[in-house]
Design a protein around this nucleic acid. Structure first.
Ligand SMILES: [Zn+2]
Length: 306
DNA sequence: CGCGTTTGACCAGCGC
DNA sequence: GCGCTGGTCAAACGCG
């Protein structure tokens, strides 16, 4: 009974979405509304409890947010390292294989194998840094978009020979200042997995989070002039990593610009270990996004299905 | 109107 | 030299 009344009140306060909760703000307002109407102390208590609970949930949410941020940061760092190592190994192997091949091909000149590596320095110069990432997606999703925290501009799409699904070509939005390109194509044997091939290294800090996240909240003073690097003085904010995972996340942190800088509260070692473990899983982003989304909705939000 | 995407044209490398 | 293939360009188009 009481609950019904409460939820009605909430529903009235909210716009059209009684299930979804802006409870964080609502809890407070709702508390003010109470005394006006006829209230019983039990309801008050309940409201108080709820409010406290909401606060707790909110704090937990924020902590999770930050944890996620830290984790993703570490993840990206580690990913870069792994990619670099893989690249180096690949190059080494490629060199040896090529040498062997060439040796087998022209058995005639056995003296100078170095010459060949000199002959074709372009090949290695052409591919300064190549790394691969695999991302699991919704099978019904044809968009060929891999959310990796950077902004990309699509400049081409091709149907390739050995794969029924097309390959999309992207350049970093900071081009030509940033030469990074990526190719995205579904795996031939598993169309639910996107294979992203990155070439080059970004010449700028990973994400431009606020640009991506808050087009409407507030404007950044930096409108990136053509001469200056996108400046990120100090550490990258924790939201930085969110677009990597799930842009929708802005809803959560929205409006709470509090100083939740208690990273030290968290077991960083554990996080780092986690990150390093997860690094081995190419589907980490997807899985993490799903997990976080699920966790978030189970925390305070009921799902909203269109 | 500006910006990003789409898509056909074009180019370069490679094998035959 | 020719054809195939992957990669890039750029005009057309759509969207906010
Ligand atoms: Zn870049």
């Amino acid at each position: 009974m009481e609950e019904a009344w409460v939820s009605t009140s909430l529903g009235l306060d909210l716009n059209t979405d009684p299930h979804r909760s802006n409870e964080l703000n609502l809890g407070l307002e709702f508390n003010f509304m109470d005394p006006q109407k006829k209230t019983s102390t039990s309801i008050k208590d309940e409201a108080g409890d709820l409010e406290a609970e909401l606060k707790r949930v909110r704090r937990e949410n924020e902590k999770l947010e930050m944890m996620l941020g830290v984790m993703t940061e570490n993840y990206i760092t580690l990913q870069n390292k792994v990619a670099q190592l893989a690249r180096e190994r690949e190059e080494r192997e490629a060199t040896t294989t090529k040498k062997r091949k060439e040796e087998a091909l022209h058995n005639t000149d056995s003296s100078s194998s170095e010459e060949e590596s000199c002959k074709k320095p372009r090949e290695s110069a052409k591919k300064p840094c190549v790394s691969r990432a695999y991302v699991r997606t919704d099978p019904s999703d044809h968009s060929l978009v891999v959310k990796d925290g950077y902004q990309w501009r699509k400049y081409g799409q091709k149907v390739t020979r050995d794969n029924p699904s097309p390959r999309a070509y992207f350049k970093c939005s900071f081009a030509p200042r940033c030469p990074v390109k990526k190719k995205v194509q579904k795996k031939a044997d598993d169309p639910t997995v996107l294979m992203a091939t990155y070439e080059g290294e970004h010449t700028h800090p990973p994400p431009t989070p606020h640009d991506l996240l808050t087009p409407l909240t507030h404007n950044l003073p930096v409108s990136l002039p053509s001469t200056a690097l996108p400046v990120f003085s100090g550490a990258i904010p924790r939201e930085a990593t969110f677009p990597v995972i799930k842009p929708n996340f802005r809803k959560i942190g929205h409006g709470f610009e509090e100083k939740i800088d208690s990273v030290c509260d968290f077991p960083q070692l554990l996080i780092q270990q986690l990150a390093s473990t997860l690094t081995k899983d190419p589907n980490f982003n997807t899985v993490l996004a799903a997990a976080i989304t699920g966790h978030t909705s189970s925390l305070g939000m009921s799902r909203r299905d269109p």
